[in-house]
C-alpha cells in the first residue's frame, strides 16, 4: 500500500518501429445463430485513430468434409453475416477468409446445449452485503471428457430521474454484473479469477455428474431512483478453443497493468491473424422481478 501511495507517473515517448498491420477476426459461432465475422486490423499502440476495417474479404464456410455451405462476398463496416448458415450444435465448421495475397483458415465445432436450471433463489447476507440475491443452480454435465463452461449475468433495471417539470423520466439499463460466489467449484479454477463478470470453469471436479452450486449478486436495486426488472443468467458451453480464448483474453486484461507479470498472449485459433473463430452454445434463464 505504501508503494502505491508513493508511486508517481509521467508520460513517456518510446521510439517504436513501424509494425506490419495484422488481420483481427472477431466471430460468432453460436448454436442457432447465423455465423458472423468482423474483420479489422491491428494498429500501432500510439495510433489513436479508429482501426482500419476490412470489407474486401471473401469468406467461405465449409462443413468438416469441405463441402461449401456459403460464401459471403463482401462486408459492410468490416462486418460479415451469413444469410443461410445457422450454426448447429455438434457440427464442425471450417472457414476460409481470402484477401489479396493472403488466405486464412480456421475451424471449430459447436458444443451441445448445457442442461442447467435454477433450483431456488433466496436473499441472504453475504460478505457483509444485506439482501444479497443467492441463486441455487443445477448443471447436468455430460460424460464425454472435459467440458468447459462460463457463467454470466445480465442485469436489467430502470433508472428514474425527475425532469424539471416534475415528470419522471425512466431509462432502461442493461449491464453485465459480477457473478459473486465463494463456491469452490466456481472459485478453484485458476482461470476464473481473471473476470468476475465471466466465470469460467471446467467439469474436472464433477465430470459426468449433476452439480449444484451457489452464486449470486448484491447488485439488485429496489429504490426510488432504481429498480431491478430482471436478471438473465447465461450458462455457456464452450469448446476447448473457446475456453482457451476467453480465459487467456480475461487473463490478458487482468494482467494488463501488472508490472510483476509476464506479457500474457491471447490464445487464438487462426494462423497468421489475431482473434478467434470458436464455438459456444448458450442456455439462458431469466428471473423477472415484480414489485
Amino acid at each position: 500500500m505504501f508503494l502505491v501511495l508513493f508511486s508517481c507517473r509521467k508520460q513517456i515517448d518510446f521510439q517504436l518501429p513501424t509494425q506490419t498491420q495484422s488481420l483481427v477476426v472477431n466471430s460468432n459461432l453460436c448454436a442457432d445463430s447465423f455465423i458472423s465475422f468482423t474483420l479489422k486490423y491491428t494498429q500501432a499502440i500510439n495510433d489513436n485513430t479508429k482501426p482500419l476495417l476490412e470489407n474486401n474479404a471473401i469468406i467461405e464456410i465449409f462443413t468438416k468434409d469441405t463441402l461449401l455451405l456459403e460464401t459471403i462476398p463482401m462486408g459492410s463496416n468490416g462486418h460479415y453475416l451469413s444469410v443461410n448458415t445457422k450454426a448447429q450444435a455438434s457440427l464442425f465448421y471450417l472457414v476460409k477468409i481470402s484477401l489479396p495475397g493472403k488466405v486464412y483458415w480456421m475451424g471449430d465445432s459447436v458444443p451441445s446445449p448445457s442442461q442447467s436450471k435454477i433450483l431456488k433463489t433466496d436473499s441472504i447476507i453475504f460478505q457483509g452485503k444485506e439482501n444479497f440475491f443467492r441463486i441455487n443452480y443445477q448443471l447436468k454435465d455430460l460424460q464425454n471428457g472435459l467440458d468447459y463452461y462460463g457463467i454470466k449475468m445480465k442485469h436489467y433495471c430502470e433508472l428514474y430521474t425527475l425532469k424539471p417539470n416534475g415528470d419522471k423520466d425512466t431509462t432502461l439499463i442493461e449491464e453485465w454484473i459480477d457473478v459473486e460466489t465463494i463456491d469452490p467449484i466456481l472459485t478453484e479454477d485458476q482461470n476464473n479469477k481473471f473476470s468476475k463478470k465471466h466465470l469460467l470453469f471446467s467439469d474436472k471436479y464433477f465430470n459426468g455428474s449433476p452439480i449444484i452450486f451457489n452464486f449470486g449478486t448484491g447488485a439488485l436495486a429496489n429504490s426510488i431512483s432504481k429498480k431491478t426488472k430482471s436478471i438473465v443468467i447465461y450458462m455457456e458451453h464452450y469448446t476447448r478453443q473457446a475456453y482457451d480464448y476467453y480465459s487467456t483474453l480475461n487473463e490478458h486484461i487482468f494482467y494488463q497493468n501488472d508490472p510483476f507479470s509476464q506479457p500474457t498472449l491471447v490464445k487464438g485459433n487462426i494462423n497468421g491473424a489475431y482473434g478467434s473463430f470458436t464455438g459456444k452454445n448458450v442456455h439462458n434463464d431469466s428471473l423477472i422481478f415484480k414489485y
Binding site: V24, N26, K40, I45, W176, L249
Partner: peptide
Amino acid sequence: LPVQVYYANSGVSPDNVIYV
C-alpha cells in the same frame, strides 16, 4: 512493450483493448 493493439469481444464487453 506492447507495440500494437486490437479490439476483441470478451463476451461481456465488445471492444476490449488487447496489446500485441
